[in-house]
């Protein structure tokens, strides 16, 4: 993509002289480099995943996917997503609302904190929870006294996933809501709307595409999370194995066809995610345009600059 854009710009800027000839060579070199790199790093691996999965026929792939352990992994992954995504959506909206609609002190500190899971290695994220809830951990004795199992069980997996995917929704909403300002909400309140009415009738429609985008990214990451989950899961087959962990186990047992079949499932979901993402990006651009049009007219930007 980037290569094509550059190429268009170059073609446009090229003056009608000998320079044009050499710029054409540069153009083709750039395009070729980009295409070769994309093919090697992205297309080829994708093709191999599906090729390896189907190498021994449809039946083998289907058997791998319908194996009880695989089904358990699918169920656990679905459960994790079903917990982590809604929690992060609610947290993301609340955090973005708090940061953008109120005058909060230490705003940038809060935003940095929200970003923390992005900068911490997932393995460390997993270890944090082991240290907190594990048998030797801070809350371990209390938890085992009350017979609550978090580490090496689904709650730990859900927690680790939540931690890793926490920034997605908030990070998507904060700049969007900052750009939109508080005028619409203030208008709604001055017209007599209460907090919920303002949120559901005014704020939510304004942020829906950003929210959908953040949710999709969050879901994709929750589905594929490996590192943090690997630490807290304990790899108990049919019990605490998520899809990515199941792929790893199959691979380590030299069941390549089965491993790639399950991997193919994850890749398929990822491809769907990309399609959904592109659709939402397209819609967001449209609604941003509408936002720009819904605001002040273009001809008056100068006057605005002069006003308060």
């Amino acid at each position: 993509m980037a290569a094509i854009v550059t190429n268009a710009k170059l073609a446009h800027a090229a003056p009608r002289t000998a320079v044009r000839h050499s710029s054409a060579i540069v153009r083709w070199l750039l395009v070729l480099t980009a295409v070769a790199f994309l093919g090697l790093m992205l297309i080829l691996p994708l093709v191999i995943v599906f090729y390896s999965a189907l190498e021994k026929g449809w039946q083998t792939a289907w058997a791998a996917l319908t194996h009880p352990d695989a089904l358990a992994a699918i169920r656990l992954t679905a459960l994790t997503v079903a917990i982590a995504v809604p929690v992060n959506v609610i947290f993301g909206i609340a955090a973005a609302w708090a940061i953008t609609k109120f005058r909060v002190r230490c705003k940038s500190l809060l935003i940095t904190l929200i970003d923390l899971p992005f900068s911490i290695s997932p393995v460390i994220a997993g270890m944090i929870f082991v240290l907190l809830f594990g048998a030797q951990g801070l809350l371990g004795p209390w938890l085992s006294a009350h017979d609550i199992k978090i580490i090496f069980a689904w709650p730990g997996i859900a927690l680790a996933t939540m931690f890793v995917t926490l920034p997605f929704v908030a990070r998507e909403l904060i700049p969007l809501m900052q750009a939109q300002g508080c005028d619409d909400e203030e208008a709604a309140i001055s017209l007599g709307a209460n907090g919920w009415q303002t949120f559901f009738r005014v704020t939510l429609p304004n942020i829906k595409w950003g929210l959908a985008y953040g949710t999709i990214l969050c879901t994709a990451r929750a589905l594929g999370e490996f590192g943090a989950v690997s630490v807290v899961s304990g790899h108990i087959r049919g019990e605490t194995n998520t899809l990515p962990l199941h792929v790893e186990i199959l691979y380590n047992e030299y069941q390549f066809a089965a491993a790639f079949s399950v991997a193919g499932l994850l890749v398929g979901i990822a491809l769907l995610t990309i399609i959904g993402r592109s659709f939402i990006e397209w819609r967001m651009q449209k609604s941003l345009l509408r936002h720009a049009n819904g605001g002040p007219t273009a001809s008056s930007t100068l006057e605005q600059a002069g006003s308060e």
Partner: peptide
């Protein structure tokens, strides 16, 4: 509260609900 003041407020950039 603003809600109970019965004021009509017109914003500089109109703040119309776009949707």
């Amino acid at each position: 509260h603003v809600r109970d003041r019965r004021v009509g407020f017109v914003f500089q950039h109109y703040a119309l609900f776009r949707h």
